[in-house]
Structure formats: C-alpha cells, structure tokens
C-alpha cells in the first residue's frame, strides 16, 4: 500500500493495532465526523467517539480500558461509512473491548447476558414461557425452538469471563 499512515502516537494505539480491526486507529485525523454522525453522542453528555479515539492516540490506556464508553457504541457504523480516512470507530472500540475483556473489565450488563447465553445457548431462554409457546402454537408455528444448549459450554474457555468481576 502506498497510502501514508499517520505515525502512531502511543504504545496503547500500537497495542490496539495488533488486534484485527484496531489497526485503523492510527489513520484518525481527529476531524470529528464520527461524533457529528453519532446518534449516541446526540443523547449522552459523555460519549464522544472522536474524543475517545483521541485518548487512545494519547495513550490513556487505563482510563480507556476501565471506561464504560467503548461499550456504548451501537456499531451502527454510520460514522464508518462517512469517515474519509478509513477509520471505523466501531472496529476500534471493538478492539478496545476485546483488550478490556482480557484484563477483566467487562460491564456487568454484558456479564449477565453472557451467563445466560452460556447456560442456554441463546439469549431469551428466560423469557420463553408457556405463554409464548402457546402463542406460537396458536399461530401455527413450531413451539419447539430446538436451540443447542451444549456447544457454548464446550467452548467456554475461549471467553475471558470465567474469573468473575474485577
């Protein structure tokens, strides 16, 4: 590739660049089109994708990894479609989440969902009551959804959530 890449400004940015998807962080020119496009930024005071990327470029490793902000990205990718430099904040924050998870920083909301997912193999097992089963039957749909509840347990070791909350 002949394109010029901005020089990484922090070891944290380089650490993220080693995770697939994270490498684009070093292309950011801090123009702010991501924040301008972001639906979450419009309705929260603290979530600003440009600012979060700036913190990464400045090497604020602990602050970013412990923060809830990277978990607020909806991955709607509107900013990614619009970024002229080929940066995807969704991918960058995805890389941040993976690194944060490895170090034990997973928001409790995600942890709770993961517990249920590992047990049941799917997300809504607890919500699927007799009422919903009957509703399906009445509509002529098969009430037996046939989810596999063993496979996720088998690959549990691939998920860095076994040690409990830090």
């Amino acid at each position: 590739m002949t394109e010029k890449v901005h020089v990484p400004t922090s070891s944290f940015a380089e650490e993220l660049a080693a995770i697939p998807g994270g490498e684009v962080v070093n292309k950011c020119i801090q123009c702010g089109i991501c924040t301008a496009s972001c639906a979450v930024a419009r309705y929260t005071d603290e979530y600003r994708p440009r600012q979060l990327i700036q913190k990464i470029l400045l090497g604020e490793r602990e602050e970013v990894l412990k923060s809830r902000l990277p978990w607020l990205c909806m991955t709607c990718r509107l900013c990614e479609e619009r970024c002229q430099e080929g940066v995807s904040p969704a991918e960058v924050f995805h890389a941040v989440r993976i690194l944060a998870a490895r170090e034990g920083y997973v928001p409790p909301e995600f942890r709770r969902v993961m517990d249920s997912l590992l047990n049941n193999g799917w997300l809504l097992a607890d919500s699927y009551t007799d009422f919903e089963e009957e509703e399906r039957e009445d509509m002529g749909l098969d009430p037996d959804l046939g989810w596999n509840d063993k496979f996720l347990k088998r690959i549990k070791d691939l998920l860095p959530i076994a040690e409990g909350e830090k």
Binding site: I98, A101, V106, N148, L158, L159, I161
Partner: peptide, 25 residues
C-alpha cells in the same frame, strides 16, 4: 425451513469479548 440445533450467532455480546469464540459460534 427453520434451522434447529443452532446457538445464538454471538452478535454484540460474544463478539465484544472474543474473536475466536465469535468465529467458532
């Protein structure tokens, strides 16, 4: 034809935690 014997696709949750788990699911 509805698929059976499958799991959740892993979107958002598994996806955020482990690329390897997400890929295998």
């Amino acid at each position: 034809i509805p698929m059976k014997d499958v799991t959740c696709c892993g979107a958002q949750f598994v996806e955020s935690l482990s690329p390897d788990a997400f890929a295998v699911i």
